[in-house]
Computed example of a mutant assay.
Amino acid sequence: MQATIYKLIKKIVKKIVFKSFAIIYYFYPVKNNKIVVSNYAGKGYGDSGKYIVEEIRKRNLLVDVVWIVDKNESDKIELPNFIRKVNYGSLKHIYEMSTAKINIDNCRKYIDFNKKSEQVYINTMHSMLPLKKVERDAENNLSKSYIKWAKRDSKKIDYMVSSSKFKTKLIKKSYWYDGKVLNIGLPRNDVLYKDTNSIKITVAKNLNISEDKKILLYAPTFRNDTNLGTYNLDYNMLLDTLRKKYDTSWTILIRLHHNISSKNEELKTSDNIIDVTNYEDMQELLIYADILITDYSSCMFDFSLMKKPVFLFAPDIKEYTQERGFYMNLNELPYPIAQTNMQLKNMINDFKSYKYKNDLIIFNKKVGLYKGGYSSKKIVDLIEKTMGGN
Rank of each mutant, 00 (worst) to 15 (best):
D158M: 10
I287Y: 11
L239T: 09
L131N: 01
Y95C: 10
V181P: 05
Y335A: 01
G372R: 00
I5P: 09
I68V: 15
Y218P: 05
I337M: 13
L170R: 01
D47E: 13
V161W: 07
K213L: 11
N227R: 13
E211V: 12
K43F: 06
I56D: 04
G325Y: 05
V86E: 01
N81S: 15
D70A: 06
K268G: 03
D350P: 05
D112K: 14
N232P: 06
D47M: 00
N183Q: 14
I24N: 05
R108P: 01
N224G: 11
I52M: 06
N140D: 13
I184E: 00
N123P: 12
K10R: 11
E55Q: 06
I361N: 04
T241S: 12
D178M: 10
K115A: 04
Y177N: 08
D105R: 00
S98D: 03
G49M: 04
F18N: 14
S353T: 15
N346L: 10
L292C: 12
I260C: 01
I252T: 08
L333K: 01
I362E: 12
S48Q: 06
F313L: 09
D190G: 00
I83H: 01
T226C: 06
I337V: 06
K352E: 15
W176S: 04
F326I: 09
K200N: 15
K194L: 14
F313A: 01
K85H: 11
D240I: 13
K205Q: 12
S262Q: 12
Y6M: 04
K213F: 04
V69D: 00
D178Y: 15
G42P: 05
